[in-house]
Design a protein around this nucleic acid. Structure first.
Length: 155
DNA sequence: GCCAACGTTGGC
DNA sequence: GCCAACGTTGGC
């Protein structure tokens, strides 16, 4: 099996890596962007590794590692009228939004801030650096390893 | 809290 | 199918 690598963003005060550590596994609810959905629905497999990124944080950056813990399935919040993620155009017969379960793997000894990622030559092609506003994105194997190394070093 | 970037919606 | 208006993301 060839493991793939991803980066997933979560607002730190919404659902942090500490929350994931407590929960062990969580449903990645609420993604409402088609490109991000397609990656979860079509490309992710259990065991794939995830850089866990804190957005809207001080500083924003990669806080640890998680892994894909399920096949994709419809996001149940799209059917729930009381949910902030409700989508009135989604039906159970034709769901619009898919997700995967995500499992905690490790918390980095320090957050690798976005500023350092932007400054690192070997990460200049990262989707995180080149594109804004994509909360689920592919990461290359070598990029994953570089970020992990940076977490072990001092800033 | 501001606001630029940019994805989505919906009128035509 | 274009594109203006709108809403959201997310750094700062």
């Amino acid at each position: 099996m060839t493991r793939k690598y991803w980066l997933m963003k979560s607002e730190e005060d919404e659902y942090s890596i500490g929350d994931l550590e407590s929960d062990g596994t969580t449903r990645w609810v609420g993604v409402r962007n088609y490109e991000a959905r397609n990656l979860m629905r079509d490309e992710m497999s259990p065991g794939d590794r995830i850089l866990y990124y804190h957005s809207n944080a001080n500083p924003s950056g990669v806080a640890g590692i998680a892994e894909v813990a399920s096949e994709s399935y419809p996001d149940p919040t799209q059917f729930d009228p009381d949910s902030r993620y409700h989508d009135r155009k989604a039906t159970k017969e034709e769901p619009r939004w898919f997700l995967v379960d995500v499992r905690f793997v490790e918390r980095f000894p320090r957050v690798v801030p976005l500023s350092e990622i932007k400054a690192e030559d070997r990460l200049s092609e990262m989707v995180l650096v080149k594109r804004m506003r994509l909360s689920v994105q592919p990461v290359r194997n070598d990029e994953f390893e570089v970020v992990r190394e940076m977490a072990e070093r001092k800033g």
